[in-house]
Design a binder for these strands. Structure first.
Length: 470
RNA sequence: GGUAAUAUAGCCAAGUGGUAAGGCAACGGUCUGCAAAACCGUCAUCGCCGGUUCGACUCCGGUUAUUACCUCCA
């Protein structure tokens, strides 16, 4: 039984899929006007973990996400660089795919761009106008927020308050275009020949920000979604508006479980351009040699909690991940002389830790608790490695359990699979001989040589072991 | 101002009405030719003040601090 915290009810609710063993989930993707930052990566990772765990639990998950490729920020960026909007969008959409790959973020089942669904958007907006939920005004089309019963409940905002705030913010011109300050644009008129636009019943223009997600989720999934996710800042206005539009059009509940991930702060401050602490994933990957540590770091805090990113917290993550990797490799090393058979006591313990892991993940994807079970397994792996006799089936079960759980976090490559050079191999062989002859001076010298070549050597009861130093 | 969230050891981070998981770091020990890895052990009374209770860190009230959202930022 999986429980999920629903932003709408502010409670953990028992998860029940609309169709048994199938999950339709939609996660808001980035606006492709720049490289994604570490916060975008966190969001993508959080929902990648949700997806992986649901699949582990036997659900067939259809995961739809978007690229917002038409929007003010893209238009501005294009103007700055003197290129057209699609050049910008294509560049950063490609960069998204390239940068999320080393973090092991699985591609969406469907990744759609706003510009690919323009006809659907226009139809959607027309429906809203027909139903009286939207109105045209000077080429723009606005949604009548107040006509939608329950507007703002997702973000738990007070309607009158929002209205007053919005009124204070808008200029006179905007006020005259809108019937009410809290109305939001579903279609925006084009004001310049140069900017990208499409022909519509209301003249040339482009979609409002929120409409694409409503359209795509309905087009690629269904009227009612099992799960809709995104950053907590999207609860208002983005998801609030999506919900209003979608439910206004279909008359059906839009989303069963609203999930929102917490922010990534940098050195305890909100990441923002004005503070100069805006860290793109692109730069981070270029300056850090272990992407799996980044993945581990971002995946192992509970998704609703904020993460504080600093060089110190990242290094701590690396140390913790190294403990898991080492335990895994320690056991893998013993596989060579493992004997046929199994140890039922050990296997019972393994199974208990796996159950604990599942129990933690079932509780709103409590990754820190789940991780504790992984560490229990690692300790078990290490103590088992120290035994005189290791049984093959049991060792395999341990290895498999650890890699499966880490795989749910999206952390792969626990074993060191890189090859040795001929030089490294011969040095290692020479060192084995030196040690057999108790020539420790030579063996220490060879160990230093190997270290300089990036190989660390350890002596164990069952022989010499090496690994690549990172 | 409104609405929320958070406050647990040097750091990160769980958790529960009955006296605090896990990890990093540190220290002591075992093992080792040395080392490494590993193992064993040590290391907090849960922001502050009240209240409820046989008993609270866990519930209630207040208070302080930090953070977020309040129209386009994940």
């Amino acid at each position: 039984m999986i429980r999920i915290y629903n932003t709408l009810s502010r409670e953990k609710e028992i998860f029940k899929a609309i169709t048994p063993k199938k999950v339709n989930m939609y996660v808001c993707g980035p606006t492709v006007y720049n490289y994604i930052h570490i916060g975008n990566a966190r969001s993508a990772i959080a929902f990648d973990v949700v997806r992986r765990y649901l699949e582990y639990r036997g659900y067939d998950v259809k995961y739809v996400s978007n690229f917002t490729d038409v929007d003010d920020k893209i238009i501005n960026r294009a103007r700055e660089e003197g290129v057209d909007e699609m050049t910008i969008a294509n560049k950063y959409a490609t960069a998204f795919d390239e940068d999320t790959l080393p973090l092991n973020i699985r591609p969406a089942s469907v990744r759609s761009r706003a510009t690919e669904v323009i006809p659907d958007i226009i139809t959607f907006v027309q429906d809203l106008v027909t139903k009286g939920y939207a109105y045209e005004s000077q080429g723009d089309v606005y949604f009548r927020a107040k006509k939608f019963h329950g507007y703002g409940i997702l973000a738990h905002q007070d309607l009158a308050e929002m209205e007053a705030n919005a009124a204070g913010r808008l200029n006179d011109e905007e006020m005259t275009r809108k019937e009410d300050p809290i109305d939001f644009a579903v279609w925006k008129a084009s004001h310049s020949e140069e900017e990208i636009s499409w022909q519509s019943p209301w003249g040339k223009g482009r979609p409002g920000w929120h409409i694409e997600c409503s359209v795509m989720s309905q087009k690629y999934l269904a009227n009612t979604l099992d799960i809709h996710g995104g950053g907590i800042d999207l609860a208002f206005p983005h998801h609030t508006n999506e919900m209003a539009q979608s439910e206004a059009r279909t008359g059906q509940k839009f989303v069963n479980y609203w999930m929102h991930n917490g922010f990534v702060n940098v050195n305890n401050e909100k990441m923002s351009k004005s503070l100069g602490n805006f860290t793109t994933l692109h730069d981070m990957l270029a300056n850090y040699d272990d992407p799996m540590t980044i993945r581990y770091f971002l995946a192992t805090t509970q998704y609703r909690r904020p993460i504080n990113y600093s060089s110190e917290t990242l290094e701590q993550a690396r140390g913790a991940l190294d403990r898991i990797r080492t335990g895994y490799r320690n056991l893998l090393f013993r596989m060579d002389n493992a004997v046929v058979g199994s140890d039922s006591t050990i296997e019972d313990e393994i199974k208990q830790h796996v159950r604990d892991f599942e129990f933690a993940m079932d509780d709103d994807f409590n990754t820190p608790n789940a991780l504790a079970s992984v560490f229990e397994l690692v300790t078990l792996a290490n103590t088992y490695t120290d035994e005189n006799e290791v049984k093959k089936a049991t060792a395999e079960l341990l290895l498999e359990s650890i890699s499966t759980m880490m795989g749910i976090f999206g952390v792969d490559g626990l074993a060191d699979r890189s090859e040795l050079t001929t030089e490294q191999k011969s040095l290692l062989e020479a060192r084995v001989v030196a040690r057999q002859m108790h020539n420790f001076e030579l063996s220490d010298q060879l160990r230093n040589q190997l270290r300089d070549l990036g190989i660390s050597v350890e002596d164990t009861a069952t022989g010499q072991r090496w690994k690549h130093e990172r």
